[in-house]
């Protein structure tokens, strides 16, 4: 079960390819214009997955924290997992998203701004949510050449339990364009990584997925040999 809590910037529906099926949204449910069952959108691929879309024409501040909390606890009775996609920022939207949660997963890209923000968010979350980390959009070949923060660099600073690492692959863009999540393609490395992360969230004892350190291409080796400038 997925809740898109980013009110005003609805996104999960289009990423999942469900945009044409959304009839009601989170605020309809919170303000009792629609029942939960009316608003839940069944996923195309998995009959066990449902989406509660964010409102698009409303604002985050219009969500009442207590109502959000009550909704999440009702959903928890019906579903094994309720994933709440929090908006960026640390304002009310974030607070509402967090209100009903038991645990937190923070997503960080290997960039200075992201690491600093995650550090702040983890500080705000405190110990109650046992935050776990996913590092997203890592580019192994840049890391190898010392041009991007590595997994160890990022987590040396954040020091969180690592759920997994997702490489920045062009196929993610392609599949998102089509609204067919790459997570479904378990034969691809990235799809398998999403599955491993899901398994770890579910408490299975599988290793944290890590993108293979892509071998240097011929062109890269050549430029390294001739001393390509590193910046």
């Amino acid at each position: 079960m997925l809740i898109d809590a980013d009110v005003g910037l609805r996104n999960l529906d289009i990423v999942l390819g469900l945009e044409s099926r959304v009839q009601h949204h989170l605020l309809d449910v919170l303000e009792e214009r629609a029942s939960i069952d009316d608003a839940l959108v069944a996923d195309k691929h998995s009959e066990k997955l449902f989406l509660l879309a964010a409102a698009q024409s409303r604002e985050k501040d219009e969500v009442e924290t207590a109502k959000m909390q009550a909704l999440v606890s009702r959903l928890c009775e019906r579903f094994d997992y309720v994933l709440i996609d929090s908006p960026a920022g640390i304002e009310l939207g974030f607070k509402n998203a967090v209100a009903g949660a038991d645990e937190a997963i923070v997503i960080c890209t290997p960039e200075v701004a992201a690491v600093r923000d995650v550090d702040r968010v983890v500080g705000l979350l405190g110990n109650r949510f046992k935050p776990q980390l996913i590092i997203n959009r890592l580019r192994p070949h840049l890391v190898r050449r010392g041009k991007m923060l590595s997994v160890d660099d990022v987590n040396g600073i954040l020091r969180l339990p690592l759920l997994g690492v997702i490489a920045d692959e062009p196929e993610i863009i392609v599949t998102t364009n089509r609204g067919e999540p790459l997570a479904l393609q378990t034969h691809t490395a990235t799809g398998a990584a999403y599955h491993a992360i899901a398994a770890r969230v579910a408490g299975e004892d599988v290793p944290a997925p890590m993108p293979a350190a892509a071998k240097p291409s011929f062109a890269e080796r050549l430029s390294a040999f001739f001393g390509g400038k590193r910046r």
Partner: peptide, 18 residues
């Protein structure tokens, strides 16, 4: 050294201040 070392060092300092 690559720019990632610079990034790491800058982050280390800025987070201490934060």
């Amino acid at each position: 050294p690559g720019s990632s070392a610079t990034a790491k060092e800058r982050l280390r300092l800025v987070l201490m201040t934060d």
